[in-house]
Design a protein around this nucleic acid. Structure first.
Length: 960
RNA sequence: GCGAGGGUAGCCAAGCAAGGUCAAAGGCGACAGACUCAAGAUCUGUUCCCGCAGGGGUCCUCCGGUUCGAAUCCGGACCCUCGCACCA
């Protein structure tokens, strides 16, 4: 029969939500479990990959619910930033790809036009996320608590958070250099290119500006990334075709390209353009280098790009292939030399000077590499590779040589920093921030780096905060284990982070200066707290306008006086105390789960904000990081739309099949490629389990067999294992046992001739509830078919216990399985068709000795002690030779066993009795007569003398 | 570049922190058998090599080391993925 998953899912999610079993109320005295997943940013449709982490969270929550916890699992969305704005803009200009995505996801045409409004975008997607994704997947989430970061009440909370950070001294102000469009203000430069139309991969570079004195008092300003190479300067490059300008910066007159002047204007407070400067006129003159004071000739070079740096370049031919080839070309170019009056003497004075010792290279790497690569002209494209190669090895492995004064012997990396500092403080250098490639705003203007003099930061570098956060992290459950260790380093490394920004963004106004909007990472760190409040705001019991500082202080920090707060806010005392009690009940947060992209962004600041603002008993208890589900060809891209809409996938594969896929396909801590066939495989698996359960339920006999006890025992063993897995949030191992191992146990039971109605229904009652975390809908349906009252979702899982009788039952069955494996091995090799099988279990003396060995507390049993006691027990002369040999063997074997195995095997079972009991089964399996003897039974048939091979746990076998 | 993670049998994927119980779970695929008129589904078995008695050999990217013993620990090489801060 084919199951109608879709109907089953709809039936049960409706039933759950009608019965409100997903709603969370504090129940004082009862254990609580509070988990969230990092809420998604509202930037468009999500894809099937996103559901992995969410589903994992729901599975954990459901498991906790079934193991004695009162759970809280709220959800929300994060709309701060420019995601919704950029989406709305695309709709507005009828961007084809966006319209296409909307259509593909079934967005009605009428709704589409509304989505040119960012707030409508947020509203629309909030609805999609909650209804089409999370409810559709049957999450045990308390929908009453939904919140979104641009809700007015949420904003009050964020304002409060900022006030607390400020009063803790954690908000600081200092200049900052940010990418900005002249028209539109700050823009985001990132690969998704939401704000920009070109240059998403650009990086912000910090150039050191070096000032070269001209005789007329002006300064030629060269921009460099390698200030330490001033020791190797030989000349200066000016492009005769570029338009330069004189600018006044403070007291000084600088010469830079016109384009560079524009950049400087955005970054220097006291600066003005004086007039144009003639580049060609400078060529042939001389300038004095900073730091060394060396006089340098000025040569022409058409390679100086007015858009890069200052459009003026200093020349270090020892280590810059471009500079070296520039000189080589100039030497050849008699015309230019004549035109600019460049003499042989000037060229001779510009010979490369070795300054850096780099392993694998001679004193003049630039000369060496151009020769090796056969580069002789500035137009050779290989020049770029050569430059990269020399830069890389010189910078990372090089050491300054004896020509470098005080810096001789220092690694280049260190010398660079030291010289930068020294020249900056002595006024010989300055800084210029620039983008590594051209970036264009959506409006078409060029994006430049602009100084923001009064930028606010959260001071995550604060030593006390860092220290307390690190200590807290040590006490937390953080998975995977690698991240538990790494987060220490991440917290240490965290610096101040800009927490507000200018421009057109969604978010909360900064309470200390309304021109700023609070930035997206800053307003999403403390928010799990808000889920205990949002519910009251959503129900209208408290209102945004009146949620003041005193209100939050009272409910979250336990500060202030109830009467005063009630009076100031107008909220009822009863509500105020309910909110406060609810916070005290649910907090701290037990688990925050989020994707791996959060490891160096959200998680550390999430922790630090809690530590900074809340009392220690409310600091977080756990973090789980999930890796991604990717498309077969690479990452499923959020900005480019999901591979298939989530509701479509749910319809096609079934929610439970998808949930099982997420749970079982791999550990949470590896990336997995989404493949339709795999999800279909899980759907088929669920159908098979359904059929198996039906087949078992249909059995209606009371016949008692020895496997009944085994089945009961095996379920106990499984339960204990399963709870151990979930203690580590190892949902994958859990699912493996529930969906693959337990069905295997059930089939084995049937194959062994089990058919006891009571035993079966007992096992099903254990098994079906175990399916709830991963596949709740199908579990409910099975539960109902079994005649149980709803809901299995709220049932409690058995704990399971491993008693002696469990051990014995397991050991017996293991014996049978082991024997079957041996027999089939023999049959396979010999290709016999058996007519009779004789099984000879180990003789009493071997069994006794085996038990002695297991009982020995030493990890390696004492061979001579084994021999002694065996000799004392068994006097027969023919054993005299066998005992020592076997003692040695058995001691070695036992030495290798785990304590668990020893325990199992120590549960002494009569092998002959056990196998005799399974005789009928074995005869059916082997298709021949089976006789079971003890090896020391004279009645046995053993013409080939196999009996002596009998060992405890592995009887001898003779097949004819 | 800096920081982090990874490379396991035809494929996917456990194992690796606490070395021995690992020829290495589980799934998929393939092959064989049962069932069936047949196909599919299902169930059972096999799926590195050798072996007519339950055994042996060679394996966990490559090279080297530690150890009685290494998929697991250490060093090196090659390859892949992710994060690097105002996109969230």
């Amino acid at each position: 029969m084919t199951l109608n998953f879709s109907a089953i899912e709809a039936k049960w999610r409706t039933a759950w939500y009608n019965a409100k079993i997903n709603e969370s109320e504090p129940r004082p005295g009862e254990k609580k479990f509070f988990m969230i997943f990092a809420y998604p940013g509202v930037t468009g449709y999500l894809h099937v990959g996103h559901m992995r982490g969410y589903t994992f969270s729901d599975a954990v929550v459901r498991y906790k619910l079934m193991t004695g916890h009162n759970v809280l699992f709220p959800v929300g969305t994060h709309a701060t930033g420019n995601g919704a704005i950029s989406f709305a803009r695309k709709v507005e200009r009828q961007d084809e790809s966006v319209i296409e995505i909307l259509r593909a996801n079934g967005c009605p045409e009428g709704t589409m036009s509304r989505l040119s409004d960012p707030l409508e975008v947020v509203r629309f997607f909030n609805n999609v996320y909650v209804n089409d994704y999370w409810k559709r997947f049957g999450f045990m989430s308390d929908w009453r608590r939904f919140t979104c970061t641009i809700n007015p009440d949420y904003s009050r909370f964020i304002e409060w958070q900022m006030r607390k950070l400020k009063s803790e001294g954690l908000l600081i102000q200092k200049p900052y250099f940010a990418a900005a469009c002249i028209e539109h203000g700050p823009v985001a430069v990132d690969a998704s290119e939401t704000d920009i139309s070109k240059g998403g991969n650009a990086e912000v570079l910090e150039y050191v500006l070096l000032k070269f004195d001209l005789e007329d008092g002006r300064k030629l300003v060269a921009a460099t990334l390698r200030p330490e190479t001033v020791f190797g300067l030989t000349n200066f490059w000016v492009n005769p075709e570029v338009e330069y300008v004189d600018v006044r910066v403070g007291e000084e007159i600088w010469v830079v390209s016109k384009q560079a002047a524009e950049k400087l204007k955005l970054q220097k407070d006291d600066m003005e353009v004086k007039g144009s400067a003639n580049g060609a006129e400078l060529i042939g003159r001389r300038c004095r280098a900073p730091f060394t004071g060396k006089m340098l000739a000025i040569f022409p070079s058409l390679l100086c790009d007015p858009n890069v740096g200052t459009g003026l370049v200093m020349s270090v031919p020892s280590d810059a292939p471009v500079d070296w080839i520039g000189l080589v070309e100039l030497e050849r170019d008699k015309t230019s030399r004549g035109k600019y009056g460049i003499t042989d003497k000037m060229l001779q004075d510009s010979q490369p000077v070795p300054i850096i010792k780099t392993p694998g290279w001679g004193p003049l790497p630039a000369v060496e590499i151009t020769e090796k690569m056969g580069i002789t002209s500035l137009s050779d494209p290989k020049l770029e590779d050569a430059t990269k190669e020399i830069y890389k090895s010189g910078f990372h492995k090089g050491v300054m040589n004896e020509a470098c004064g005080d810096f001789a012997g220092q690694p280049v990396e260190r010398a660079k920093e030291a010289m930068r500092e020294e020249m900056l403080s002595s006024g010989q250098a300055d800084l210029l921030y620039d983008l590594s490639e051209e970036v264009l705003c959506r409006c078409g203007n060029r994006v430049l780096i602009k100084k923001i003099p009064d930028q606010w930061f959260i001071d995550y570098a604060n030593p006390a905060l860092t220290e307390r956060s690190k200590e807290q992290a040590l006490t937390m459950k953080i998975l995977p284990r690698e991240y538990y260790e790494n987060i220490q380093g991440v917290l240490e490394w965290y610096r101040e982070r800009a927490c507000v920004r200018l421009g057109n963004w969604l978010g909360t106004r900064f309470p200390f200066d309304q021109k700023w909007i609070i930035e997206a990472i800053a307003d999403s760190t403390l928010y799990p707290v808000y889920y205990v409040i949002s519910r009251y705001a959503n129900e209208g019991l408290i209102t945004a306008e009146r949620m003041d500082e005193g209100f939050f202080d009272y409910v979250l920090l336990g500060r202030g006086d109830l009467e005063a707060v009630a009076k100031a806010t107008g909220f009822s005392r009863e509500v105020l105390d309910r909110v406060r009690a609810e916070f005290e009940y649910w907090y701290p947060l037990d688990i925050n789960l989020g994707g791996k992209e959060h490891m160096t962004v959200h998680f550390p600041v999430f922790l630090m904000n809690h530590v900074a603002v809340l009392r220690p008993q409310h600091w977080p208890r756990g973090i789980i990081v999930n890796w991604y589900i990717t498309a077969t060809g690479g990452k499923i891209s959020k900005s480019k739309g999901g591979a298939q809409p989530i509701p479509d996938a749910a319809e096609r594969f079934g929610v439970d099949a998808m949930r099982l896929f997420y749970a079982h396909i791999a550990s949470l801590y590896v990336d997995v490629a989404w493949e339709d066939e795999k999800v279909e495989g899980y759907r088929d698996r669920l159908e098979r389990l359904w059929n198996l359960a039906s087949e078992l339920s249909a059995i209606d006999t009371d016949a008692v067999t020895e496997v009944d006890a085994w089945l009961a025992a095996r379920m106990q063993t499984r339960l204990v294992r399963l709870h151990k897995f979930m203690a580590e949030y190892d949902l994958r191992s859990y699912a493996n046992d529930v969906y693959f191992e337990i069905p295997q146990d059930m089939r084995w039971y049937l194959r062994r001739g089990g058919k006891n109605k009571m035993a079966i229904s007992k096992a099903l009652e254990t098994w079906v509830p175990l399916m709830v975390p991963a596949t709740p809908h199908i579990a409910e349906e099975l539960w109902e078919r079994m005649g149980k009252a709803p809901f299995v979702s709220t049932a409690q899982l058995e704990q399971g216990s491993i008693t002696d009788s469990v051990l014995i039952a397991e050991a017996k069955e293991k014996l049978v399985e082991r024997l079957m494996a041996d027999v089939s091995e023999i049959l396979k090799v010999t290709e016999m068709r058996p007519t009779r099988t004789t099984i000879m279990t180990a003789p009493a003396w071997k069994q006794d000795m085996f038990q002695d060995a297991l009982a020995d507390p030493k990890s390696r049993p004492d061979v001579s002690a084994l021999i002694k006691s065996a000799m004392a027990r068994h006097q027969s002369p023919e054993l005299k030779k066998e005992i020592p040999a076997f003692a040695k063997e058995i001691a070695a074997e036992v030495a290798k066993m785990s304590p668990e195995d020893r325990q199992v095997l120590g549960a002494r079972v009569s092998e002959r009795e056990t196998l005799s009991g399974a005789k009928e089964f074995l005869e059916a399996e082997f298709g021949c007569r089976v006789d079971v003897f003890s090896a020391d039974d004279p009645a046995r048939t053993d013409p080939k003398g196999k009996a002596r091979f009998a060992r405890p746990g592995r009887p001898a076998v003779f097949i004819e």
